[in-house]
Structures are given as C-alpha cells and as structure tokens.
Design a protein around this nucleic acid. Structure first.
Length: 649
RNA sequence: GCUUGUGUAGCUCAGUGGUAGAGCACUCCCUUGGUAAGGGAGAGGUCGUCAGUUCAAUCCUGACCACAAGCUCCA
C-alpha cells in the first residue's frame, strides 16, 4: 500500500499497515511521540489499518488539540472504566454495570450507563480520582477485530451491547478497544495509551437518556464530561459557562424586572412586567413599521377556535400531542389556538378575491398555546403560551419568488438590527418515509425547490435537513446559538400549497376561472417570548437606548437639586423618553452604582453647576465602557437622545 | 414525560430533631454628598405543599408541586 506524507514523500507499506507503522518507518522518535493521525483528511488512530491509498499526517503531543475528538472519546472510555471500578469498589460484581453508547461531543464526551445504584454528582470527585488513576497507570489502548459470535459471548451480560452487536452485519469483523481489563465495543479511533490523555477534563452533570433515544425504551443514566488539551482551555470553557450564567435571561429577567413565571398562573405562562412589556412593545413597533412599509395589513383573531377549524387545517390530527385538550361548550368543541394560520385563511376566504388583489399579506401578533412537555419549559425560550409575529401571504404562483425574497430581506434586516451574526439558515424538507405530511408530491417538490433557489439567490449559507418540514410545507428557519452554544430557532418562513387546498380557497384569475393561491407563513422573530429571551442574553441585559426599558436616570447631587431634576424628567417624559429621578437620600455615588447595576444606559447628573446653566452632566454605558460628558446643554442632549431613539441606535 | 439534583425573608444564601439567621433590597431617622456602596433604627418567614415517624420536624421518610441540567419533543 501507498502512503503519502505531508511533504510529498511516499512510503510503501504492507497491506493493513497502520499510522504507527508509517511513523516507525519514518523514525523511532516520531513513533514514540505520535498520538493520532489523519488519513485522507479524516482523523484516525495509530492502531487502525490505513486505506491502501492514504495521504497521512501524524499528530504528536505537540498539538494534541488537533486530535481532540480522539482524546475525548478515549476519556469517555476511561470514565466508563472508572465507573465500573467505582461500583466494584462498592462491592458490586463487574457485570452489574451495563453500558449504552459513549461518544465524544463538542467539548467533551458522555457515557450512558445502566447502574446497580444511581450515580449522583457528589460521586464525581471520586470517579474523577479513579479516572486520573487510570491515566496514571498508562495503560496501552489496543484494538482488536473479533467475530460476531465471540463478541456476543463477551458481552452476554450486557443487553445493550448485545443489541448493538446483533445489529451489526454478520460478515464484517467487529472491533473492540481495550485498556487494561476494560474492553468495549467501539469503532474508535482512540489515543494509543491512557498516559497520553490530557488531564484537563471534568465531569459536569448527569441526566437521563433513553436507550437509543426512544422514550419507550429503558432510561439510562448519562454522565457528561468536558475535556481539553490544556488546563487553560478547560478554564476558559468553564469561564464561558460562568458568563452564560451571568447572562441567563431568567436571572436578568428577574433582576431587571422584565418577566416572572408564577406557578399559580401556570407553568410556561410568563407574566410580562412593565419593563418587559416595554421591550416587547418596542420590538412590535419596530416590526409593525416595517410591515406597514411592506404593505402588510394587520388583523386580529381570537385565542380559541372551533375544533372543526383545526380539523380542516389538519392541526388537530397532526399535532394532537401538543395541543391543549378541547373545551366543550354547548355541544361544540373549541380548542386553544395552536396556530394563527387557519384563522387567517378564513379571513382570506371572507370575500371573493381577484388576481388583482394579490398578494394579500395578513399580519397579527397572534398568541398561541401549545402543550409543551413540562421538562421542556425554559424561561421565555420555551413556553406554553406565546405570541408569534405571524403573517400569512396569499399570492399567485408568479408572485411567490418575489414575496419569498421580500420576507427573506425583512428577516435579514431584523437579524442585522440586533447584530445577530451567528445565525444558521436551515431548510427543512420532507423526509421520504414520514407519513405526517399533507399534500401532493408535486406541490412539495415545487415548494422545496423554490425555497432552495431563493435562499441560494440571496447567497446565504444554509443546510438542508430532511424531516424538518412542517406538516403542510417545507420551511426555512433561522437558528441562533446562545452563549453556551445551545441552538434556538428564531424566525421561520414556510411555503405552503396545502392549507389553501384543505380550505379550498381561491382567487379569480385574469381568465375568469378560479385559481388556488399559495401561502407563505412567516415570523421573523419567531415568538416574542423566545426572541426577547435570546435578546436578553445576546445583550447581557445591556440594551441599546431604544430597547432599554429604563432609558434615562437623573441623579440630583443634593436634595436642593431635586426640583430641577424633576423638571428635566418631565420634559424628557413629555418628549417620549423613559426617564426617572433618583431622589432617594443616598449619596450620589450610591445612586450611580445602583443605576449601573440596573444597566440604565444614560445617567444625567445634576448639581449646582448644571442647574445654573440648564445643563446636565452625562454618564453613559457604552459597549466600550463608561462615557462621561460634562456641562452639556439639556436641550441639545434631549434632541440627541430623541434622535438616537428614533433611529433605534 | 424521564434521570439526577434543588426548594429557608422580595433577591443571594447560612443554619439546627427543641417552631430561625446574614448581606442586599424595603420603611423611617440622621447625613446634602460631584461619577460604582455615608450612618443608625425598623419591618419582613406556615423554612415549597400534604401526609408519616417522633414527646417534639424547617431538619428524618413518602407522595405531590415548582425549578435546574440533560434526554425525548418542538406547527
């Protein structure tokens, strides 16, 4: 076989040779330092046979981070081994610990266990201790091919492994990786020995995980760990987690009095406090202005609807699990509205439509209710009652592309307005097998094709995810990462040929005949709840002036300046700015501190000097830090603030 | 819904088998201070809920409720 090295040098090795063989052929020193390799661009380990034509690079202890997935995976095995030893030390037999899967993940690894007694996070220091001990033993990690029968015999005690092995093809060898007396079914790749693994790891949490992700199968206990090549990287990662905690919208939401979730009202049903309501209203006003310019028309629809409506739309049948149960009134059944679309369709159908009327763009901040599983609820980002910035565009086929592009343009504008750059565009299409979709194949294909075309035309990077479509049509979602890397879907655009058909809506064409309109569903924010939640974390509570619930705080230095301060407050308020006076008996330093902690963007400090010349001393929070200006004319400042407010800066 | 945790004053958290404490916030008094904490006093708690064990439970046990992390799910 043929191996090409990064410098272009060629090696001729025996068939089945490994990266270690290649390293040995180059030199004994390299063979000693090598930890992993890439073959034709893919990470591999030192013990797996190379392909017959391989361009390889060797990864040594100088740059272990290049092989992070490998050491994370190996540390997962070390965890698995350590947990086994931990339970044996408690007197359980070796076979008592059964294991699900244990892959590497973004910053670390996890391992699923079926344990004889639950593991708690208090056990982590002890288990980490065993792990470090295993690293200290410097066990060789070896790879072996075994036959299926032997594999089944080896893991006869472990039903999970048996199931995994049984699912593997009969004729291909099954690989095991071992270190010391620990053996696991594994495809690899791994580090060559436990002593080479980084010690910068930490066990983070446990959780339940369904065997094979299936809620009807047994629950396993999953242990998560993070691991990095160096302690410095681990520390930086932990610091990021701390930062995420500081920015957590649930914490800031309470501190800044934006919202509360009151169990007496109901879980997943947030109450917007005055400060939060301001945020929400500012966002709504921003979008309404845009929609007005783009010729949308506002509509308002009720929060419940007749069950027949949702049977016609298909929401009732297709999403029975996530609807609130119907309410019976006078022999009729009603349901809390899970979607605004059916209502908007009926508004479209409320009068005959001509091709001249199209497109019809109906917009509503519509509140919907969905029964989310209790474990899914999360602050504002996952709730049971929320308001979508919804709109439905009914258009002719020849208008579809232009309309879609306009919606895309609006969404890009929204994201840009908030400086959201780490956004992923995801095209959700049907998956071939699924039966939950309504409508004809040709409609689906046309819709999917047009979304992909339009997105391509705008030049946005996107991924296509089969199976991610709505039941009535494919969609384009905007997905943003929060501070700790969790992804949240924000806006969505969906092309729908099916609801118009289900509701049998039409327009009269130029030819005098009836034609079927196409619907676009769109929500640039997605939901106001989730968007505000993400926005709080995005800004860390430091909102720009236009969004800040408390914009200006006037700080009188002594009581004798209170009247002047109140006078300024009156004027700012009359001009439409959210201003307050801190007339408490605190010292001015304390007032400044308290305003800073409240993240109020503009502070006006007034004392004798300012009062004499109708001036203010300005202290502002900016992304670059504190900015101070002394002796600023109040009227100029007011004009400046108003301009910034109107410009949404 | 599942697993592991957590639940004590508005917030952040101590604490004990003999019915509770701090800091901040709040109220009042003193202080009138020039860009991140002036001083003092006071008020505030059914120790998540309901059962059980006990002479006695905030503490131990159980169930429930809520919350957190993750899993599953997300029109």
């Amino acid at each position: 076989m043929h191996v090409t090295l990064p410098d272009g040098k060629q090696l001729e090795l025996q068939h089945g040779a490994t990266a270690l063989d290649a390293a040995k052929a180059i030199g004994p020193r390299l063979a000693q330092d090598a930890l992993a390799a890439t073959a034709n661009g893919e990470l591999t380990d030192l013990m797996t046979p190379l392909p017959d034509e391989a361009a390889i690079t060797l990864i040594t202890k100088k740059k272990p981070e290049d092989a992070a997935p490998l050491f994370r995976h190996s540390l997962g095995h070390v965890l698995s081994q350590a947990v086994g030893e931990f339970y044996m030390a408690k007197g359980f037999p070796r076979e008592a610990v059964k294991r699900g899967v244990g892959p590497f993940i973004e910053n670390g690894f996890y391992q699923d266990f079926d344990l004889p007694a639950p593991l708690s996070e208090e056990d982590f220091p002890a288990i980490e201790g065993v792990m470090r001990d295993i690293l200290g033993r410097n066990l060789d990690i070896t790879r072996a091919d075994v036959g299926k029968a032997a594999a089944l015999e080896q893991f006869a005690y472990d039903p999970y492994k048996v199931e995994l092995i049984a699912g593997l093809p009969d004729d291909e060898p099954i690989t095991f990786y071992s270190q010391g007396d620990y053996v696991d079914l594994c495809r690899g790749p791994h580090f060559p020995r436990t002593g080479a693994l980084p010690t910068a790891f930490r066990l983070m949490s446990t959780s339940s995980a369904y065997w094979r992700g299936d809620a009807s199968r047994p629950t396993l206990q999953r242990v998560y760990g993070v691991a990095f090549a160096t302690q410095k990287e681990l520390d930086a990662y932990l610091e990021r987690l701390e930062e995420a905690k500081r920015r957590d919208h649930r914490k800031l939401g309470r501190e800044m009095e934006l919202f509360v979730i009151d169990p007496l009202v109901g879980k997943g049903l947030p109450l917007w406090l005055p400060n939060g309501a301001i945020l929400r209203e500012e966002l709504a006003a921003f979008l309404k202005e845009q929609q007005f310019q783009r010729r949308y028309q506002g509509v308002i629809t009720p929060n419940i609807g007749n069950l027949e409506l949702y049977k016609t739309s298909g929401h009732y049948q297709n999403y029975s699990d996530s609807n609130f149960s119907p309410i019976t009134v006078d022999d009729e059944q009603y349901m809390l509205k899970p979607m605004n679309c059916p209502h908007h369709v009926r508004i479209y159908a409320s009068k005959p439509r001509s091709y001249r009327d199209l497109p019809v763009r109906l917009a509503e901040f519509g509140t919907v209710y969905r029964y989310e599983q209790s474990g899914e609820l999360n602050g504002l980002t996952r709730v049971r009652g929320f308001t979508q910035d919804d709109a439905h565009i009914f258009c002719r086929p020849d208008q579809l592309k232009k309309e879609f592009l306009d919606v895309l343009d609006l969404t890009v504008l929204v994201l840009a307005t908030f400086g959201m750059t780490d956004v992923r565009f995801r095209v959700g299409t049907r998956d071939a097998s699924g039966g939950k979709y309504v409508g004809s194949d040709e409609n689906w294909e046309a819709a999917e094709r047009q979304i992909i075309e339009a997105v391509g035309e705008v030049g946005l990077p996107f991924t296509v995810e089969p199976g991610d479509a709505a039941f009535y049509g494919p969609k384009l979602d905007f997905v943003i990462k929060d501070v700790i890397g969790r992804e949240w879907q924000l806006g969505t655009i969906q092309v729908d040929y099916n609801l118009p058909e289900r509701f049998d809506i039409s327009y009269t064409g130029e030819d005098g005949a009836d034609h079927r309109p196409i619907m676009i569903h769109r929500a640039p924010f997605g939901s106001l709840e989730r968007f505000v939640g993400i926005l709080i974390e995005h800004y860390g509570g430091d909102f720009p002036l236009w969004l800040a619930p408390r914009q200006v705080l006037i700080v009188p230095i002594a009581d004798r300046h209170n009247d002047y301060a109140r006078e300024l407050e009156q004027e700012l308020h009359a001009a439409g700015l959210r201003a307050e006076v801190d007339d408490s008996s605190n010292r001015m330093n304390a007032k400044v501190r308290s305003a800073e902690l409240s993240k109020i963007p503009v502070m006006l400090i007034v004392g004798d000097q300012e009062q004499a010349g109708r001036q203010v001393s300005v202290r502002e929070r900016t992304t670059e830090g504190t900015r101070e200006r002394k002796a600023v004319g109040f009227d100029d400042l007011k004009t400046e603030l108003l301009e910034r407010y109107r410009a949404r800066a």
